[in-house]
């Protein structure tokens, strides 16, 4: 194993982590603001991948990259209005159950419409051939994923930090009740945030689909690691999600080099270690749902 190989593998770790991070960000936003754990979040990623395939087959990739996130935003809003908002006052267990049911329904719906086989969702033509990035040849699409994720994280940061709405979201993540007393229209905010979370999952799906594959079970397959990312990073902590996403992504990637049979289970081992050592998560706040 030489340095070049290692570097390329680390790069792949970034890409794997990037997808986890984007889904985890949506999960954390929704949980932090609405207090709902969205078990259907992976399904939103899956829908993004399916729509990405379908639309890109019809009108080319660029249209898909723009349209799919918007569609997911709308779908997210619809889900919140029609279903989620009736569960804000119900116990957490009920929220988990209903979103789990939704995930199952969405998954089977996709299977019904598209069939169960892996759809040939390819990258844009210019990204098919590996390019020389100095230390070796590397699939450019993976770099695109990393780049888009960085851009999204940056945009999210700017949005939360510097806009009025972002301020409201951050405040809402700390004290939703107070927000209501301040006369801020909480329900509308909730709807928007859920839509935003879905949009993030949609971006992840439309650009990640070519790498992860497009099947009905891809939703849950990315949801579980993303859940672990959130748990390890600390629920409600956006920096925590980014940090632990990178950590897990690298763990998976490096395990390919070090001990390939462990690749699928390495994230669980890492999670177990973090849990035993720091039950609250790497950057988690004290008392947040211990």
């Amino acid at each position: 194993m030489n340095l070049a190989n290692l570097s390329l593998q680390l790069l792949t770790g970034l890409q794997i982590g990037a997808i986890y991070v984007m889904i985890a960000l949506g999960l954390t936003l929704i949980f932090g603001t609405l207090g709902v754990v969205n078990f259907a979040h992976g399904a939103l990623f899956m829908i993004g991948a399916y729509l990405g395939y379908a639309i890109s087959e019809a009108t080319g990739h660029w249209v898909a990259f723009i349209v799919v996130p918007v569609l997911l935003f709308v779908i997210g809003i619809a889900i919140e209005r029609v279903l989620i908002r009736f569960f804000y006052n119900r116990p957490a267990v009920d929220q988990i159950l209903v979103t789990f049911g939704l995930a199952l329904v969405l998954q089977e719906l996709m299977r019904w419409i598209f069939g169960g086989t892996n759809l040939p969702y390819g990258t844009p033509d210019w990204a098919i051939v590996p390019v020389d990035i100095g230390i070796g040849y590397y699939p450019p699409w993976r770099l695109v994923i990393v780049g888009v994720t960085i851009a999204v994280v940056g945009a999210l940061y700017l949005f939360l930090r510097f806009t009025r709405f972002g301020l409201v979201v951050r405040a809402g993540m700390r004290d939703p009740e107070m927000l209501g007393y301040l006369g801020i229209d909480v329900p509308k905010r909730f709807t928007f945030v859920f839509g935003l979370g879905a949009l993030l999952a949609g971006i992840a799906g439309v650009i990640g689909g070519p790498i992860t594959g497009v099947t009905p079970d891809i939703g849950m397959a990315v949801l579980v690691p993303s859940f672990l990312v959130v748990v390890i990073g600390g629920m409600g902590s956006l920096p925590g999600a980014v940090l632990s996403g990178l950590l897990l992504g690298e763990a998976v990637s490096l395990s390919v080099l070090i001990y390939p049979p462990s690749t699928q289970i390495i994230i669980y081992l890492v999670a177990a270690v973090v849990l035993l050592w720091r039950p609250r998560g790497l950057l988690g706040a004290r008392g947040v749902m211990e």
Binding site: A92, Y268, L269, L276, P279, M289
Partner: peptide, 24 residues
Amino acid sequence: LTLRRRGIYFSILTLAFAEMFYYA
């Protein structure tokens, strides 16, 4: 392992660690 956390966390962790056995 999973009861080190409560509520939602607990549920998520049970899902995760069971998946580990599946992949193993």
